[in-house]
């Protein structure tokens, strides 16, 4: 074979491979059909309200964080560089720096504020992901597909809230007791809060909301007019993190 013919063949082969993504359009799965029951009738829009006047009343309370860590198999890595966080506390003047100033109420300024993935309406992490490993579901939850993530960490750079964690090493040795109800993650993928979509599917509240006995966390469907979140948001002043970026967070804070 001449070299030129070889090159031609090679290029043809390569362009053939590029058809692969569309191949599934022509093939059918060999097994029974999967009835995809999309809930198109009145799609929910999940949202959470953190009531800062209740949250933190019990000193050093971490019930919600512990519950999340436990059921999602979050590794407990002591090196802060490699820490994995889905929901955690940060001081008010860090979370809401644009709302903090010198002479403000000192208690509020240093108050611990619960932070987690905001499940933005316009999530920057989703537009930057090169493989659609993170995407926005029809009900607004920003999901992660750990099977597909290549670990480029572009989403971490794009998230204005620092809500994403990378598995810098194998997380398994750092999980005290593995919960069978949820998979762990593997080395080299990005993870974050999933609004407990696995619990929502079973009509359960997110673990953090359920764990908060003081009622400081309220979760629900903002598309439902009679939902509690909707009522709170329409009657009380709430703030969101970095609203000027236009990401439209769905985690709201009331003071």
């Amino acid at each position: 074979m001449k070299r030129r013919d070889f090159l031609k063949l090679a290029i043809l082969t390569l362009s053939g491979i590029s058809i692969k993504p569309f191949a599934h359009l022509f093939t059918k799965p060999a097994f029974a059909d999967i009835s995809i029951q999309r809930t198109n009738k009145g799609l929910p829009r999940w949202a959470m309200v953190v009531n800062l006047s209740i949250c933190g009343k019990k000193d050093g309370c971490t019930d919600c964080i512990d519950a999340c860590n436990r059921i999602h198999n979050i590794p407990r890595i002591t090196n802060p560089k490699h820490a994995v966080k889905w929901i955690w506390n940060a001081p008010f003047d860090r979370v809401f720096r644009e709302q903090s100033f010198d002479n403000m109420n000192e208690g509020l300024r240093k108050k611990s504020v619960l932070v987690l993935c905001n499940h933005c309406e316009n999530p920057p992490c989703v537009s930057v992901c090169p493989t659609k490993a993170t995407w926005k579901r029809e009900d607004g939850i920003v999901m992660m597909d750990y099977h597909r993530c290549i670990g480029c960490r572009y989403c971490i750079a794009a998230c204005p809230y620092g809500a994403r964690s990378f598995n810098w090493k194998d997380p398994r040795p750092y999980i005290k007791e593995i919960d069978k109800g949820f998979p762990t993650r593997t080395q080299g993928v990005v993870e974050k809060c999933n609004f407990c979509e696995e619990r929502i599917a079973k009509n359960l509240l997110p673990a953090c909301v359920e764990a908060c006995r003081e009622g400081g966390l309220i979760f629900g469907d903002v598309n439902k007019e009679d939902s509690e979140v909707r009522k709170i948001l329409s009657t009380r002043l709430s703030i969101r993190r970095k609203p000027h970026l236009g990401t439209e967070p769905k985690v709201y804070y009331i003071l």
Partner: peptide, 22 residues
Amino acid sequence: DLGQPSRVFNILLYPSFSSLLF
């Protein structure tokens, strides 16, 4: 720099045109 280099071809298998990396 990839955490899962063996999956790098996911960029071609599931291309995302909104990603500058693509």
